[in-house]
Design a binder for these strands. Structure first.
Lengths: 188, 188
DNA sequence: GGCAGCATTTTACAAATGTTAAAAAAATAA
DNA sequence: TTATTTTTTTAACATTTGTAAAATGCTGCC
């Protein structure tokens, strides 16, 4: 397990000793395409790292479902509000492929945070990276039009375009599927 | 200084010993209304906690300026990208009142993170709280119309309505000032 | 092949928001 | 107070995006 973790970029900065401690609480699990791994209305007791496959986080609105995150191999995958406040969160997480994941119990992880300086700082950096990414998206929403956001998505996540339904990409970009179709038609 | 910190909610969870360590690197500073405390194009070497007054973070676009954060007494105030990646960020921070702030050098703070378990976890929680707040705003943008976001802002930040120009609130809510005026007119 | 079911695009129209400019109101200074 | 400047609102019109429904395309399966 230790050697497997070593190859995942999120663990790259860690010492062998810290890696051992994390390896000791990690379990490799597999789930099938279509599995809802995390439910918005439940407190999720696990933290995951996606080893292979893709996933999306979405929220259910009154008459629509909005995707606001896509995960790929190497990404961390957790319910923000479960992880941070130990309460049900805002997102469901669905696997869009058969996925291989690393699973840790939050209770084990928090126990390491409270004992191990290096791992506590590693956990701090995870939150910080998610924060920067989320802020970036909020600012992009303000400054870029839907067409530009689509272009950015194309260049930054070319693999996802092929594998994800356009309706999910449309809601991720903050427009309806009709508008996304119009953008795509204009790009021809 | 120690006793002063004790009354600020962000420090409430800390032990006396941790508080002493933070107090030792903290400096109380004052700045006048209108002061640009943080510039988007510079790496900001400080971390602040707002003791009194209000502030806003904004980005400059081509022909507009977009406010995406307001801070009040007790809030932390820092350039996300300076803090996290040691690079210039996306936001300018302007003081909207004469403000009293607690200032720490990032280099001092990071040094504590790397030495002190409790403070490292405190830093983790700061990032996590900002993350939850930012995610919340992204989801609200997706599910709520501008009128509802304005109502929420009214109930959640009644003090800010009185003290902040509507053009800043409009851009915070993601609409033009004209649209915000229409929303306000409809509410009469 | 051909049908069933789902995803995507297109069309026509409606609603919301943006743009520009000007008027009104409010704040500030003389 | 009046004059001047700034902020906010209103109006008219243009543009974007949404909604609903129909048309087209795609996939799997009998």
């Amino acid at each position: 397990m230790h050697n497997q973790l070593k190859n995942i970029s999120i663990f790259k900065s860690l010492s062998d000793e810290a890696l051992d401690r994390l390896a000791a609480i990690s379990l490799e699990v597999q789930h099938q395409k279509g599995k809802i791994l995390i439910y918005a209305d439940k407190t999720e007791p696990h933290f995951y790292i996606l080893l292979s496959g893709i996933a999306r986080a979405y929220s259910d609105g009154e008459n629509q479902e909005i995707t606001f995150w896509f995960g790929q191999s190497g990404d961390v995958l957790f319910s923000f509000n479960s992880y941070i406040n130990n309460k049900p969160g805002y997102e469901n997480i669905e696997l869009l492929d058969d996925c291989c994941l690393l699973q840790m119990k939050l209770s084990d992880l928090f126990s390491l945070y409270s004992q191990h300086l290096e791992i506590a700082n590693w956990g701090r950096k995870i939150a910080e990276q998610e924060l920067i990414a989320t802020e970036r998206r909020l600012i992009d929403r303000a400054f870029k039009g839907a067409a530009e956001r689509y272009q950015d998505f194309l260049t930054q996540s070319p693999e996802l375009i092929k594998r994800v339904a356009l309706k999910h990409i449309a809601s991720y970009l903050g427009v309806t599927q009709v508008t996304l179709s119009r953008i795509r038609a204009a790009n021809k």
